[in-house]
Design a protein around this nucleic acid. Structure first.
Lengths: 250, 250
DNA sequence: GCAGGAATATTCTCATGAAAATAATTACAT
DNA sequence: ATGTAATTATTTTCATGAGAATATTCCTGC
């Protein structure tokens, strides 16, 4: 007797067979929803590197067949967030040390470029909005949990990238940040009571002052700070259940 | 009756049931092979923007079921090389003008960064090998066909990126170049008898001379040259797109 | 007790059928 | 002849079963 009744069909699933309902409701695109759910869970550390992904569990949870889950896993793999082993199954990726270094380097370069673009494109209003985000970070920093902090911290960089006005570069940075969250979970040593929020605020300050060089220098410092938290020598994968995690992301 | 016997099973397919053969031969991974095949075809212009992709045809051709083809199409879509419309099918992507601009800009920035890295990492031998590639280009330029030229031209940039020693950035540039080939096929006006090979050679020269600024300047010039071949203005662009599509159904 | 191996149970992998949606074609009416 | 409705054909989309590969359990013999 096992937990999930496998291979049984989702007759009892929530949305089951309700074909004639609201009809034509926008883009449900369950595949994409699964992809985002998993990516988010990974980014938050709810799914740690090395954890095995059960197709069936996800299929059951979303009330679809394994086929569509498979689709989502496929693109997640091509994004380097998952790893599929021959006939073993799929696991949350465990970036190698070499990969981690490349990611850090790529990020440094990219953030520099993005700052240039932001300097050219961003309006005062947008910078104000960005500053607001740092306020939120500050608040979370005092009252929030680890998870929120991590997520929000990454969000700052993505929002900053958006202000650069280049969707291509934004997407790239976004993917790098996602992969780096895996690196952090794998190799992080000390969770320094981070000055992240303050760094972010300073960067915005430099941007508002139209001081690109300063902004870049601050960014370098900030990133160096992050890189300083990891030791790039063999680490271990944390273990966590998987079903419980899913519950939080329905 | 139609061309392909659909929904009939691939009993007669080439590789059919040969389970016990070489056994355990590395990663056949048909999905990946399909992905690469399509990506290559798109890059060479064999599959032009807007062309519809028939799952069945591919499945038949590779002797697999639609399921695995679907997997490949999924990741190609996430790479922005294909576009899947609700219940209509999947088509070769037609990058918008805005997207094209972002791609060009991203590429310019990335190539700059890559040159920095190459300057730091590349050995003399590697630069020599790169120079060899430009010789090959020269040869193709005189004797080869359009297709080879296009492909080889893109290859130079990817190989250059590899010399930077950062797999993450290399992959990114590679994907951008792929998407830009779509842009060229969509919006290119004049197929200038290109000086590409010569540009490439000059860039290598600057690198060998350890003159980063010069290399970057040459790269800028080279890229500007490429961008100069397309017209990315709203009105004309739409018309061009429309015509390009028509050609596919002539 | 423990190593080794058979038996069992999971889980992935893929092909295929059925249903839904769209496109194409024909038939019909004005 | 042209536009519209109805029929047919094609194609996507998905769920599911069968088979293969791997993991797990259980049993036996030392």
């Amino acid at each position: 007797m096992k937990k999930t009744t496998r291979r049984q069909g989702t007759k009892t699933a929530p949305k089951a067979n309700a074909p004639v309902d609201t009809a034509e409701n926008a883009h449900d695109d369950v595949t994409e929803r699964i992809r985002i759910t998993l990516a988010t869970a990974i980014g938050e550390g709810a799914l740690k590197p090395g954890v095995k992904i059960l197709e069936d569990a996800i299929a059951d949870h979303f009330g679809v067949s394994r086929t569509v889950v498979r689709g989502a896993l496929g693109v997640l793999e091509s994004d380097h967030l998952l790893e599929r082993k021959k006939n073993r199954g799929t696991f949350v990726a465990e970036p190698s040390i070499e990969e981690a270094k490349a990611l850090f380097e790529a990020r440094r370069k990219l953030e520099h470029v993005i700052l240039e673009l932001v300097m050219d494109h961003a309006t005062a209003d947008q910078l104000d909005a960005l500053e607001k985000l740092t306020d939120e970070e500050e608040h979370i920093h005092h009252h929030g949990d680890e998870k929120s902090k991590t997520v929000l911290s990454g969000k700052f960089h993505v929002v900053l990238a958006e202000l650069g006005g280049n969707a291509v570069l934004t997407e790239m940075l976004s993917k790098i940040v996602a992969r780096l969250s895996l690196v952090m979970f794998l190799y992080e040593e000390e969770r320094k009571d981070d000055c992240g929020a303050d760094h972010h605020r300073q960067i915005v300050g430099a941007l508002k002052a139209k001081d690109l060089a300063k902004a870049q220098q601050l960014m370098d410092h900030h990133l160096a700070d992050i890189e300083g938290r990891v030791r790039l020598t063999e680490g271990q994968g944390d273990r966590h259940t998987f079903l419980a995690v899913l519950e939080n992301f329905s």
